[in-house]
Every structure is written in C-alpha cells, then in structure tokens.
C-alpha cells in the first residue's frame, strides 16, 4: 500500500518536473522527429541507408561471408557469382566481406570527425561571439587564416610523425571542417548572442556558458545540423582520397577507400570492382547530406509544427494526470 502510493507520488513529481521546464520526455520527442523524417522522401532514404550502414557495421563484427584474410589466388578479379556476390579483388579476397568490414571503419571515422569538428567548431564559435571584443576579433582573424589550409595538406603534415592512421584522417577533417563550421555558424550565433533573450537570461544571472549552450548553440541548429552531417559525408570522401594518397587508413585495415584504392589500379581492365565501393560511398554520402536536411526540418521546434504540438499536448496531459492522482 505504501509502496504503491510512493510510486504514484514519484511519478507525479517527475511529471511535474518535466512540465515546469516545458520539457517533453526525450523518447516522445525522438518518436515525433523520426516520424516526421520518415514522411519526407529524402529523410526516409537517409534513414534507410543509415540503418543499413549501422546494421552492416554491427554484423561485420561477428560475421562476413569470408574471413578478410582468406585469399584465393586462382580467383583474382573474379566477376560477381553466387560464391562472391560482388566478385573478388586482385588477391582473390571477397569484395563484399571487405566492404562490410570497411563500413565499420568508415562509421567510426564519420562519427569521430563529426565529434571533433563539432568541438572545434563550437569552441571557435564561442570565442568569436564572446563578449570580450579583443578576443572575439582575434578569434575571427585566426579562423579566417587557418581556414585556408587544405585538408590534404594538413593530413600530409600529420602523417609525417604519426604515419597513416584513422587518427590522421579524423584530425585533418575535424580541424578543417570545424573551422568551416565555425565560420558558417557564426552569423546566426552572434545574432543570438546579441538578442534580447540572451540579454534577458544574462540579466537573470544565467552564466555565459549556460547561455552559450542553451540559447546560442540551439539558435544555430538549422546550420549546425546540415554542417555536421556534411562533415560526416565529406569525411568519407576524404578517407577515400587520403587512403589513395597513402596517408589514410593503413594497409590491411578494411575501409571503403581501401577497397577503392586496391581496385582503382586496374580500373581499365576490371571496372566492375571499382563500381561497388564507388556506389557504396556515393549512396552513403548522399544519404548523409539528405539526413542533415531532414534533421534540420524535423528536429527543430521552430520548423516542425508536430514538435510544438507535442509539447502543448504533453504539458496539458501531464497536468491532468497530476490532478487526478
């Protein structure tokens, strides 16, 4: 009896907690966002490709049609067949197995690049919109200067001491995309930083950091969503390019760029082998770009009416259950 009423009370409280800050439970918000994305053709395509990518990456941890190192010299450059659906490469290894395993590497690279570029981008943005004028203008100058360094050059520089590795790709991409992001995000961020709602928050004693993360960063959401997904997509293209140059993933580590590199040498003789990694990369990069657009349109309460409606309904319902209990 006591336990039950205790539970009821706790539920009521947590409901009111959410209610007071106008927050909708994360799970409900996520559901509405997913549904809205599914209703767009671009969003649906992106979601399907992302789901496949993640599923294949996980699957490749346990199973690939052939072990990666199993080669069959007699069947090098084999055409697609029942045994090897996507054919074999120059040493007779199964292309499908390598692509499956490679999707894992590329997923890691895309996620890490997104993370690093977000951190660098937001850090630079924070400096550029800071209240200290001198710091802000110094930040703008530094970002504008560093933005001129191309990704490839940076990767080549990093590769000198560290050798070819995933870290080199992530560092080079994260840095250049982060700086780019900062520059693109800055106008909306500084608009928000000067806005009356930020002044109001500061006047209530909200700290500058809190204002940055709760008001200024969300105000850049439309740009940020697109930029972040573009970072992820472009990092996959960069991985292919850098691996081809020998400063990307080390040989022996499966990646789409690796498969592309090994097969591109004989493209004029066996064009079909290039087709599969090329198609995979194109598909995934397109999906990532579309994903950014879909997130921008669906995850922002300003753009998505459904999210606003959800907040209104939930707050009404939460209160009613509170009254009934």
């Amino acid at each position: 009896m006591t336990a039950v009423s205790d539970d009821g009370k706790r539920f009521k409280r947590s409901g009111r907690d959410r209610h007071a800050t106008g927050n909708v439970p994360l799970r409900m918000r996520f559901g509405v966002i997913m549904r809205s994305m599914w209703q767009q053709s671009g969003g649906r395509f992106a979601l399907i490709v992302m789901a496949c990518w993640i599923a294949v990456s996980l699957l490749s941890l346990f199973w690939t049609p052939y072990p990666l190192l199993q080669t069959d010299g007699g069947h090098a450059w084999a055409s697609p067949s029942a045994a090897h659906p996507l054919g074999t490469d120059g040493v007779g290894a199964d292309v499908l197995s390598w692509l499956m395993a490679g999707s894992r590497t590329n997923l890691v690279i895309a996620l890490l690049t997104m993370l690093v570029s977000a951190m660098i981008g937001l850090a630079c943005t924070a400096v550029m919109v800071s209240g200290r004028r001198a710091l802000a203008s110094a930040g703008v100058v530094v970002v504008d200067a560093l933005i001129a360094i191309p990704t490839v050059l940076l990767a080549l520089l990093f590769a000198v001491p560290f050798g070819a590795s995933i870290a080199v790709i992530v560092a080079a991409c994260g840095m250049t995309y982060g700086l780019n992001m900062a520059r693109i995000v800055k106008p909306s961020a500084s608009l928000a930083a000067r806005s009356a709602y930020v002044q109001a928050a500061r006047a209530m004693g909200v700290s500058a950091w809190r204002v940055f993360f709760t008001h200024i960063v969300p105000s850049t959401f439309p740009v940020l969503a697109v930029q972040l997904s573009m970072s992820a997509g472009t990092s996959i293209l960069a991985e292919a390019g850098l691996t081809y140059l020998g400063v990307g993933v080390p040989s022996g580590v499966p990646s789409w760029g690796h498969t592309l590199t090994t097969s591109v040498r004989l493209i004029s003789v066996y064009p079909l082998t290039v087709l599969w990694p090329g198609l995979t990369v194109t598909l995934v990069v397109t999906a990532l770009y579309l994903l950014g657009d879909a997130i921008r349109d669906c995850a922002d309460p300003l753009a998505n009416v459904e999210l606003r409606k959800l907040a209104a309904t939930v707050s009404r319902q939460t209160h009613n259950t509170g009254v009934d209990a």
Binding site: H19, A20, T21, G22, N23, S195, A196, Y197, Q199, A200, A201, M204, G205, V206, S207, R210, H215, P218, S219, F221, D300, P301, L302, A311, S315
Partner: peptide, 23 residues
Amino acid sequence: QNPFTSLDPRWSAGRSIAEGLVV
C-alpha cells in the same frame, strides 16, 4: 520591448519562465 525577440523562439513558455528559477 519586443516579446518575440526577448523570448527564445526554441523554448516553450514554461521553460522560458522557469529559466531563472532553475539556474
């Protein structure tokens, strides 16, 4: 002066009102 610039458009009314108290 202008409520539409002094309220964060991405915040619900409840969250905006509670901001100072939460902090």
